[in-house]
Design a protein around this nucleic acid. Sequence first.
DNA 1: CAATAGATCATCT
DNA 2: GATGATCTATTGC
Length: 211
Amino acid sequence: MSWRRAPSDWQDRVSLDELLQQTEILPRSFYERPTVEVARELLGKVLVHGATAGQIVETEAYLGEEDRAAHASRGLTPRTRVLFGPGGHAYVFFIYGMYDCLNLVAEPEGRPGCVLIRAVEPLCGLAQMRRRRPSARRVEDLASGPGKLCRALGITRALYGVDVTQGPLTVRRWKREPEFEIVVGPRVGIRHCADWPLRFYIKGNPFVSRP
DNA sequence: CAATAGATCATCT
DNA sequence: GATGATCTATTGC
């Protein structure tokens, strides 16, 4: 499928029908584990929203009270409410007056923790993504960043709190899992706990926000 | 190339 | 009233 084609090709890697056939929705038990584990294992999984889909190639873990960079460290507020609920829900927040960022809630109910999706490799619905992000010059720029991917896939705060084991936003795993190496490094764009090794990405993947 | 300013608003001080 | 889990266009070397 995708990997046979050159990265700079604007064609869909796979049709939506094929994709849905070759993947299955991740169960809630996948999310209700330690956040770091979930962040690592979300790599190579597929995010589907409407007719657009992309493979997750870069993530960051945000923990609880001890992690000053995490929104949850300030406690339960209207915005962070979903972080304290059960895993497998979307935490979408608005930042810099302009962009939305998508996180997936990890850990069982009562304990906060989430995984920021930082980049996806577009798989299908490329034409629609391009329409939503006309400034992207290369396919590699379409969803290589938390704000970019939300715009490309049409993800907004309207999806705050939705259950990603049900739709309309879902995360799926390939029935035949791909193999790759994982690179670990410090998280991007934060002040507190800036050197914690909580960023993960697929080694050599050209759709990562910054290698 | 690298550095920087501007866009723009929910959230918290 | 300041800040921020960003992106883009523009400026300057």
